[in-house]
Write a protein that binds this DNA or RNA. Sequence first.
DNA 1: CGAGGTACCTGACAGC
DNA 2: TGCTGTCAGGTACCTC
Length: 291
Amino acid sequence: MPELPEVETTVRGLNSKVLERTFVDVWSDWEKIIKKPKEFSQFKKELKDKKIKRIWRRGKNIIFDLSDDYSLLVHQKMTGHLLYGDWKLESGMWKPKIKGPLEDPQNKFIHLLFWLDNGKMLTLSDLRKFAKVEFQKTKELLESKEFKILGPEPLEKDFTFEKFKEALKKKKEKIKQVLMDQNVIAGIGNIYSNEALWHAKIHPEKNIAKLNEKELKLLYQAIKKVLELGVKLGGESFSDYRKPDGSKGDFDTERKAYKREGQKCHRCGAKIKRIKFSGRSAFFCPNCQKL
DNA sequence: CGAGGTACCTGACAGC
DNA sequence: TGCTGTCAGGTACCTC
């Protein structure tokens, strides 16, 4: 997924469906997806009868707080997304029982399925099988290095302009790369970094040391704006991401830069350009966003 | 320490 | 039609 708005959309969708539900059983055709514990049989045994007490998000991680102080962590990586509903096994493939958005082709790569105590299922569809799932004591998760090192949550009230500047200070690289660093700010990926930089009129390759106060302020506001809009619209779905009910998010109508190479800038009419650095594509308007 | 590459996977799509 | 190369919302790990 999916970045912060998509993860948040998933969390909200699941909260309205599976809170207080208990895990009955689990199936997978890709057992490697479970990173903790290492043995799938152990995962299956330990998860059984655990009740979902809370579902929340930290950066792009989804966390199910379970009974007995356990947690189930899901990171959807590039193409994973969690779905809720009813499926039946048909010639080796899980098919939705009811007609509707779950039939979307993006929802058919089911590699992990949980049976819940209300007879419904929670599944993970993941074309590229990059997603990861971990089951452990909540304390162990919260105290893990990967978790503790995550940067601040950009949509939290305490993410002030001062805190934003403080977070950026840790780095010296190109601004886009810094924005996508989960340990600087948690939750921003390729789409929303491109979008925020477009709104703030900042070139993605600009070194953060060269940003003046005014640019920093614009960027700070742009980040909050695009992420909030993303959440409000239920995320971006032009590619694989789908909401827990299988339907698409609506952020696509707001996309100004990402994947718009060669198309007109909505602000000045110049052609959006694509460049590649640090292994990712950056999209920007060469006229509005100058180095 | 930072920068860059690779690995993990599969499917869609463009070009020949 | 079919083959080949490129690309994809992420992140961990390795080397230089």
